[in-house]
Amino acid sequence: MRADGRVILSYCLLSLLLLLAAFLALTVGPAKLSFSDLWRSATGAGSQVTDTILFNIRAPRMVLGAIVGASLAISGACLQGLLRNPLADPGLIGITAGASLAVVFVIVLGDMVLVGVPAFLMQAILPMAAFLGGLAVTLVVLLAASLGGSFSAGRLILVGVAITAIASAMIGIMVYMSTDQQLRELTFWTMGSLAKSNWNTVLIACAAMTLASLALLSFRRELDILQLGERAAFHSGVNVRRVKIQICALVAVAVGAGVSVAGPIGFVGLVAPHMTRLIVRASHWVVLPISALLGANIVLLADLFVRNAIPPAEIPIGIATATLGGPFFLWLLLRKSRL
């Protein structure tokens, strides 16, 4: 709340970096377009091909990347604060497992079961299934955790682990049943991708992610109080049980919408908040928005890398976030602990 210099500097630098990342996302890609071509397209006088690349391929991808990154990071920060557990990430309450399970079902059994579904629905079925699957499994986790009275953070985490394990087992059964072609599709889906050829899907998902993330930002006060412990928070007038359910539900929507279009992009939700806390040791008032900026930057830069590393092929973005981010995070931790 007290705006110290370091926080202001972080805001400024991360915003500038985000602008730069967004600019690079629009200007650098496997199709070598000159600045003058891009400028002509931007001012409405470009060729059809440049227009398509700029407005229908790079732009939706940039928007999706920034918003997925921001919402993953906010969600991770909220869960870490809520559960007071540094290992918490959106996977913990079953969203990723639920979404993956639903997607695996659609890919493996869809061709058998979904006969006669109209074409326009067929295209939306995978994102819809992922979203609903994530939501449904999170709901099961919340319900199971609240059964038997104590709805503690520890219980929520353990129930999350158990249900995720069950979902993984079912994914295993589906993978076992899959054909060669389905297996390839599944594998690539689980590694994430921001490539979407369709503005509509991107906009719907982004609207859900933005609304849920903004709603999460409004829990900053409660999250700060919760750091004193659940009992203390309760005595300070926080309805701990309700806050828990609300935050988990919002995280499920924010992350679920992201996973539904981009697949599970690992590492960002776990690490962006930690990086933020290493830079600014502050309350959730600052940690949530700065995490969001950092998350957006991480995803956009990772996508810049995967699009341009080995053209014309594309590396799944989850590989990049983990292989580039993991060691960086480790270095950051080791460096800090030496101080």
């Binding site: 890609g29 496997p30 390839r184 991708s193 050829s197 014309p312 594309e314 799944p316």
Partner: peptide
């Protein structure tokens, strides 16, 4: 031009 079965970038498809 890459090896094996891989996702191909949309812009690269156009190019």
């Amino acid at each position: 031009t890459f090896d094996g079965w891989k996702p191909m970038n949309s812009e690269a498809i156009i190019t």
